[in-house]
Design a protein around this nucleic acid. Sequence first.
DNA 1: GAAGCGTGGGT
DNA 2: TACCCAAGCTT
Length: 367
Amino acid sequence: MAKRSTEIKSESRSVAERLLAWYDVHARVLPWRARPGMLADPYAVWLSEIMLQQTTVAAVGPYFRKFLARWPSVAALAAASIDDVMREWAGLGYYSRARNLHACAVAVASEHGGEFPDTEEGLRSLPGIGPYTAAAIAAIAFGRRATVVDGNVERVVSRLFSIETPLPASKPEIRAKADTLTPDERAGDFAQAMMDLGATICTPKRPSCNRCPIASLCSAHAAGIEETLPRRLAKKERPVRRGACFVLIRADGAMLLRKRPAKGLLGGMMEVPTTPWDGAEIDETALLSHAPAKLPWRRVPGLVEHTFTHFHLQLAVFKAKASAKAARDAEGIWVSTDELGGEALPSLMRKVVDHAMPDLGPLFGKR
DNA sequence: GAAGCGTGGGT
DNA sequence: TACCCAAGCTT
């Protein structure tokens, strides 16, 4: 028994040593990252980790740079208005992250003297920081030994130990294995090495085992089953919901927008006035009962289609010129067309504007 | 534990 | 093309 325990420990150390040596040479250069062996700025680590939740490095890059340039410190971000933060976040998705980001900055500034807590427990108590993010910040910014488990680590560990129990039931086992692998020193570099490995070599499809520094230790590779792991429970199918948006244009060219409720889908973001979205077929008469004003609406041919995580959406688009009464009485704010790009419009609503006003040129990329 | 919550890039 | 799914958190 004692011998077996020693073997496991020896093998675990070998994984960490190999990964750290690999990381020293192959670490990806990312704007929020310190060089291997160094600790990174907690603010930059926190900001990047929130943005990276369920979001690719490529998508985060421009947003991280914009945020850091505009708000170089947690104090600066705490002093910003929530509306400015939502505008800057527009297009990145999962908008509760932006609200929690600002709330977290305010909490750090007002309750922690402007310094992030340096323990997992302290970090975990802040809005938007869950188990993964708390461990990542503690390890990467503060040099704590913390077990960092994200989707990459789940995949790498599932393969390394041939864990055939499907996710999410296997999470406790994966976490326990990841904990045995985590070294006492350089836990942050180890975590980033695992994530780099998962992102560039131990990929979901067609992993590049020939370039993997721990392939010789990998149980799934030895068995030739690496591509079948990790197993997952079958996903539910995506229902279709339908509705309509109403593009109302004032005589001076301004467009009517509304702010969505703070919570729920696209919470706190701006929208082109819209019907509720449900499973009913497109019925123009029924949809028009939700219009922001009684006007001669004209249907814009075609549909705007957009896929969310849990449903697919088809939107009809109606367009009208605002009467003097409508311009006076309609609920919402009027935005000139050249200021639309700076509004907190989620990607769906940018598609709606593009569909209704193709002459404006795409709102995407104009920010 | 399960559902709700965005988006764009890769295959 | 039509999926798949990414450095998850909250309720």
